[in-house]
Write a protein that binds this DNA or RNA. Structure first.
Ligand SMILES: [Mn+2]
Ligand SMILES: [Mn+2]
Ligand SMILES: [Mn+2]
Ligand SMILES: [Mn+2]
Lengths: 155, 155
DNA sequence: ACAAAAGTGTAGCCTTGGCTTTATTTGACC
DNA sequence: GGTCAAATAAAGCCAAGGCTACACTTTTGT
């Protein structure tokens, strides 16, 4: 997850094509994980602003289930990535890019939950698992989920 | 992910029931992520032993797409957790617990891929996404996946 | 049998994302 | 308007999981 701006560690010739493909999959999973935290915080900040008019660090921390310094650090990362802004002792605000991310993440989250329920997962469990699953659903898979849901018998 | 044997940070009364439920979800997702790496390494070691008769650190690293010291560290964690054994300059071996984990993870991986394909995800993409998704599929959801696949028209 | 190559181990660095503790600022209330 | 509680910030700890560089074994090939 540090792997952000690293030279990408080119594969030695000794690695078989099989190995390389497999390694690619793990790399993709790691990349997805690296952005997962930012996605969740962006979504949460969006929720809070919508519900309460503003997002305070204390509220973010409470909802994320972390100590407030952890939330502060996450906000710092979001700022560094250009996803939010904040001034000392004031609330946190999403930039356009952050708002865009939050909306996308929220929509994907909903689709994942809906798909799980359509498959037969209890809603409670669907909501629980979706929080982790969502970050590993690619655009292609998301499209497939939407398509599947669209042609579901409305029950 | 350090969160292993921590006091679980009891929720303040100020947090609403809503907030608490949400926080629980994030905590579960974090817990799942914490074991994800061990699961992947255990599965990989199992694969290598089956295919090549033994699991060498170099092969593990190549297939995981990491540098070999990273694989060595992962093996150390597996050993600490009682999931594998190894002696210097010799291969890595799964303990009964490790083998059990590897088998469970492999079966779950297969189910996730099959489900994605059944939903309409291209096989290539299914394999890619499954590598990350699998670690967030609870037993309940896995059972639902199996049930769904069982009553699928065989195509 | 030995030299070279390949594999392995070890040390030390970095970032992330948790945490606690302590200091400062803000805002609410009387 | 002053006091005090709550919110925020700042500092510093830790483990995980990446990495490189370097040292040491083991294996291989002549
Ligand atoms: Mn999430
Ligand atoms: Mn979410
Ligand atoms: Mn995986
Ligand atoms: Mn897998």
């Amino acid at each position: 997850m540090p792997n952000q701006n690293r030279p990408a560690a080119e594969m030695p010739d000794s690695a078989s094509a099989q190995d390389t493909a497999q390694a690619e999959r793990f790399n993709q999973a790691r990349a997805a994980q690296a952005v997962a935290v930012l996605e969740d915080y962006a979504e949460m900040i969006g929720d809070l602003i919508e519900e309460l008019g503003e997002a305070r660090v204390t509220d973010i921390a409470a909802r994320m289930g972390v100590a407030h310094p952890t939330a502060t650090k996450a906000v710092a990362r979001l700022k560094r990535e250009g996803l939010c802004t904040s001034r000392p002792y004031r609330g946190v605000f999403l930039t356009p890019a952050g708002a865009e991310l939050a909306e996308r993440v929220r929509a994907r989250h909903r689709t994942v939950v809906d798909l799980l329920i359509a498959i037969g997962v209890p809603p409670e469990t669907a909501e629980l698992d979706a929080e982790g699953l969502e970050h590993h659903v690619s655009d292609t898979t998301l499209a497939a989920f939407d398509a599947f849901l669209a042609k579901q018998p409305p029950r």
